[in-house]
Amino acid sequence: MAKLKIEDLRRIKESKKGTLNLREGVYRAKVTVHMGTCGIAAGARTIMNTLMTAIGENKTDDVILTSSGCAGLCSQEPMMTVEVKDLSPVKYVYLDEEKTKKIFREHVIGGKPVAEYALSMGSETTY
């Protein structure tokens, strides 16, 4: 390994940014794929993979991806919730690969919710 210069330090830092942002809790958008038994049966796994690939291809490092349990609307799975900073969370239903890519492009990256696939704005009140 060649000796490092200041540029190399910066390059290493950049390449690790995604992972570290996730650990430090610094992010602009959070995408939750609902992966209860119902979600997985309906294809949530594919949705998760699509998102991970999209994040990798876009070299996005300020979006965190997480899974959660059943959201209670088992008949409309696969579902995901997109929370972009300073915007209301949006729940999307009946997802597939194409829809997911579009939502990632327009809502997660672009900040504009995709109304046609959305179920509702906002989340339930939780205690």
Binding site: L22, M52, E57
Partner: peptide, 11 residues
Amino acid sequence: KQKKTQHTNLM
């Protein structure tokens, strides 16, 4: 396949 950044880290 392309190396992805894992979305969950267990420390």
